[in-house]
Design a binder for these strands. Structure first.
Lengths: 179, 179
DNA sequence: TGAAATATGTCAATATCGCTGACATAAAGG
DNA sequence: CCTTTATGTCAGCGATATTGACATATTTCA
């Protein structure tokens, strides 16, 4: 019931002169899945004049209170100029606040306000509902499998950093960077 | 080895006053996975002055030769003005060509040129390699499971249409829209 | 046959979110 | 003290999306 993906035959994809057949189904499904995944937050954000960029910033500030600008730039991989506009709006409208660093007073440590935390959590819950839906049709070990699958999609040299960001500890199953 | 995702305890997420705990790990992993997933094509596309928008158009034209403008707009969910610029460049640089519809001569049927087909397939193979990597660490039924997972992430009312687009037939496993 | 609907094109203005380059400031650190 | 670091800011630009309005060819239907 979980097989029958190709309705002709199973086994390795037919190798032609151009190499293995592309996995068009996964490519397109990921495209559509991601589109719907971000559409939920987008609908809420546009009511308050925010966009996806605001969501990303708010999300990681909520997840890691005390985040510095430099750390945020490293996570988002955007320039400080791009960040600054978005962050300014989040600060002005009181979704995020900043305090000077304790050991290094040049640093701006970012914290969500109560309102910011509430919004971030609302959006996270929306997206969680979608995951719950998607996992509900699958077996009981679907969630760790999904986690392993998505982690495997990330650049190998990035996995360690991402794992620490996500779990603040080891990758699940003590998975190493070796693959 | 596949469990141990939460290093405290398994079972249903602790329900607080704010509802179930968000699946921060899946949310963030999907964010990073998608970012790396599109980064591969981006690197190649920028060498020839194209962007993600060109990729999307070329991909679906390659997958469905004879696609009309209206169908393409419906798939991409953008306005015709947005499509027109991108499509114009693909036509001008001979990655896509158009022919008048046979039964309806108002329609522009879009076809990939040989060069367009080659580029589309090169990009699809790049993304397929990433999927191959991600699936290689998992069990033999990981691919149908991944397909079911991603399909489950898509809006229920969209699944039928997406399935037809992806497989030009039924959803895998004869899955219905009912969930 | 003539009017309305359809498929598509195009012009103009605007928004979001990314970029580069250049320069400023305050704090840290040898 | 001088250099490096963390961050801010001004100015301009580019890709990709939007809305609104209007044009053209073709099909469809009363």
């Amino acid at each position: 019931m979980l097989s029958g993906v190709q309705n002709i035959e199973e086994g390795p994809a037919p190798a032609t002169a151009e190499g293995p057949e592309p996995m068009f189904d996964l490519i397109e499904l990921l495209f559509f899945a991601y589109r719907d995944f971000v559409a939920d937050p987008d609908r809420i954000l546009e009511n308050i004049g925010f966009g996806r960029a605001h969501h990303r910033v708010l999300h990681f500030v909520d997840r890691q209170p005390g985040l510095t600008i430099a750390e945020l730039l490293d996570i988002l991989r955007i320039t400080k100029q791009s960040l600054s506009r978005v962050l300014k709006e989040l600060l002005d409208q009181n979704y995020v606040e900043q305090r000077a660093g304790v050991s290094d007073r040049r640093q701006r440590l970012l914290y969500p306000t109560n309102e910011g935390r509430r919004l971030a959590r609302d959006l996270a819950r929306l997206q969680t509902e979608r995951f719950t839906q998607a996992l509900s049709t699958l077996g009981p070990d679907a969630r760790p499998a999904a986690i392993a699958f998505l982690l495997g999609m990330i650049d190998p040299q990035e996995r360690e950093k991402v794992s620490q960001l996500v779990w603040r500890t080891e990758p699940p199953g003590g998975q190493r960077t070796e693959l």
